[in-house]
Simulated scan of single mutants.
Amino acid sequence: MHRLRPELGLIQETLLLTLHARALDAGLPRPILGDELSADLAARIDYDFGRLKVKPDLVATTALRAKKLDDAVRAFVAGHPGCVVIDLGCGLDTRMSRCDPPPGVDWYDVDFPEVVDLRSECLPGGSHLVGADLTSSGWLAAVPGDRPAMIVAEGLLPFMPGDSFQAMTRGLTRHLPSGELAINGYTRFAAWAMKYHPTIRVLGIKAAQGFDAPREPESWGAGLDLAEEQILTRAPEVALFPQPLRALTRLTARSTALSRQGVRILRYRF
């Protein structure tokens, strides 16, 4: 079997972290996401995944946030069968395969050009690939601006510098007539603390961006209205977490303030 050797920068290399976490989840007796395509894909990548030191807690939380974002995409597509889906910072995520949208949906996977090139080798066909620096705005011309859109951004917020995530969001909501934005939210403390996570430290990445109040994005000038905040410490899938993470998560779930420091899914309408 031919194995692909990716040539990626530090930020882009995080896609291998999330791919590995989804692959490990798929190999569990009781997976949360069960993404077997990610497991097959990881096996085709020539990379020392062991250096990432991925722990069971990261596997569980990565799988759970992906599952909840998938659910948000499926719900939107069901209500808007001719819509556009835009997966920002898509990496090597197999979300389109997992969500299996109907033929009338146009799916756009957006990431750095070198990531899109790798993706075209690993996951050919299916979606429209857009290679772009998301801190610029020119790439929006590649996306239809006359149909409702589901925008999903998993794990992207902390890695965009300054207020570039907010500026990108304003550009998207001005370009598109209506839709939803679904993200996994990071508080400022959670984004700051990411720098000290063993896996992030291995890659040498300094994540920094986050926000605390779930309604804060309503002040970005992007026409966003909070539709839902899912605090994932209270998700039923926590029953599948390994111990002692399961017990700790259930204890944390008693406090909304503490739970918000972990994984939460936020949906906004525009």
Score class of each variant (00 low, 15 high):
residue 127 S to C: 04
residue 222 A to T: 02
residue 208 A to V: 09
residue 33 L to F: 13
residue 75 A to I: 05
residue 29 P to R: 11
residue 88 L to I: 01
residue 4 L to F: 06
residue 37 L to V: 15
residue 228 E to R: 11
residue 180 E to M: 06
residue 97 S to H: 14
residue 184 N to W: 11
residue 18 T to C: 04
residue 259 S to M: 14
residue 65 R to H: 13
residue 2 H to L: 15
residue 121 E to P: 02
residue 78 A to D: 13
residue 207 A to Q: 04
residue 141 A to M: 05
residue 188 R to A: 06
residue 105 V to S: 02
residue 142 A to Y: 13
residue 212 D to Y: 00
residue 198 P to H: 15
residue 93 D to P: 09
residue 78 A to C: 06
residue 48 D to H: 14
residue 253 A to E: 02
residue 202 V to R: 11
residue 182 A to Q: 03
residue 51 R to E: 09
residue 5 R to Y: 07
residue 269 R to C: 03
residue 212 D to E: 06
residue 30 R to D: 13
residue 117 D to H: 11
residue 153 A to G: 04
residue 6 P to Q: 08
residue 164 S to P: 00
residue 55 K to I: 10
residue 172 L to R: 08
residue 153 A to C: 07
residue 264 R to A: 15
residue 131 G to T: 02
residue 26 A to Q: 01
residue 65 R to A: 14
residue 135 T to D: 08
residue 157 L to V: 08
residue 191 A to D: 14
residue 126 G to S: 00
residue 201 R to P: 07
residue 71 D to K: 09
residue 233 T to S: 05
residue 151 I to M: 04
residue 159 F to P: 10
residue 113 P to T: 11
residue 63 A to V: 12
residue 53 K to E: 12
residue 216 E to P: 02
residue 240 L to K: 02
residue 100 D to F: 11
residue 157 L to G: 06
residue 248 L to F: 07
residue 161 P to A: 03
residue 77 V to N: 10
residue 107 W to F: 13
residue 11 I to L: 15
residue 175 H to Q: 06
residue 143 V to G: 12
residue 177 P to I: 10
residue 204 G to V: 04
residue 42 A to L: 07
residue 260 R to E: 15
residue 236 P to S: 04
residue 51 R to Y: 03
residue 129 L to W: 00
